[in-house]
Design a binder for these strands. Sequence first.
DNA 1: TCTTCGTTGCACACTGGTGTGCAATCTACT
DNA 2: AGTAGATTGCACACCAGTGTGCAACGAAGA
Lengths: 205, 205
Amino acid sequence: MCNNGAVPTESSRVRSMNETRDRILDVALAVLGENPDAGMGDIASAVGVVRRTVYGHFPSRLDLVRTLTERAVTEMTAVLTEVNASDAEADATWVEFVARLWPVAHRYRVLLALRRGEYGEAIHGLLGPVDELLADLVKRGQDSDVFARHLPAGVLSQVAYGVVFAIADSDLSNGALGARAATITSLLMLGVPETRAIALVDDQP
Amino acid sequence: MCNNGAVPTESSRVRSMNETRDRILDVALAVLGENPDAGMGDIASAVGVVRRTVYGHFPSRLDLVRTLTERAVTEMTAVLTEVNASDAEADATWVEFVARLWPVAHRYRVLLALRRGEYGEAIHGLLGPVDELLADLVKRGQDSDVFARHLPAGVLSQVAYGVVFAIADSDLSNGALGARAATITSLLMLGVPETRAIALVDDQP
DNA sequence: TCTTCGTTGCACACTGGTGTGCAATCTACT
DNA sequence: AGTAGATTGCACACCAGTGTGCAACGAAGA
């Protein structure tokens, strides 16, 4: 060993290994996005690698999905906490939130489908923190009379960002069109008047 | 044969057979509602019958699901065409639609989850007519400036009744509370102002 | 009573996915 | 050159679900 205990690159061997590991994760996300029931074999061949290799990185299918979920949770919590730190009104915060969450939501849209069946419990558990942050934001909006109260904050937040994911999953998933539509739609169902909603999304492009 | 060619009951034998057939359908709907991945075995034992018997009525799992879907389509189209025949404003029609669709949507909420994966294509095809009717209604609303145009009618209708199903699937699925919440939420995202939405739902209880 | 037929219980073959074991191979590092 | 280790290709056992075949059993109908 020549590496004096620090983190730095054990050079290209491990790097290339991490590379394939990351590629597996990326491709798995894409493949599962198209078909949540895709097997390890499908994923492997999509990566351009043998099934056995995938098992070399992730001992089980659950591990793969879990890792994917943890990744998503990390990214989403980062966006949420950062955006939530602002002292703007809840609806403006929501707009920025959706705008910045959009690409992430689009990438990880499969998790919504994966929440049901088999790994549902595991995913649900990992996604818990995100749900809480979201509910807090909506609650804040309700308390300041910016959001409507026709649903309790917990449910409303779920339904609202469920819609964001749903639109991210639909045809218009790409381009600013989808993002704009998702933002307006979610704002509307949060009880924000249409005029205000449109003004908000056109304010900060 | 004593039955002169007509439809009437071949008496209790066939009746009891149709009875178990219907019970299988009902229970299957409930079981699949809790776990869309439930197998024929799970369904059979939930009915209180042997797996082999289920196969006696439905040659394959797909047949079961298809029959279930056809049932749902029949009921939903009935409600939709009937409600849609009225010459009321689109938003009022929507309110009545959700009110009458609610129990049906709650029963068949599993179809939304089943649309993905495996039988997705078959279900999607069968559900086509319903989607069209729905899109027409929303289009009508948009043309008369009752509904917003932030999304094309096709997508907006899907997302809107997706929300109805989503709420039907959540905790508040039972009681008028859920129905009311679903109606208001869907109206909001259709672009109906909150005051008008509340007035509408409180108008015709 | 005898027949019919839905139901049962058990058997089986088949499929498709999972996870493991192991020898062979190729490549980067020493 | 030599070695460590990631990758490969193939083997296998295992499991769960599907769909079928068939000999019973039991109750409604002739």
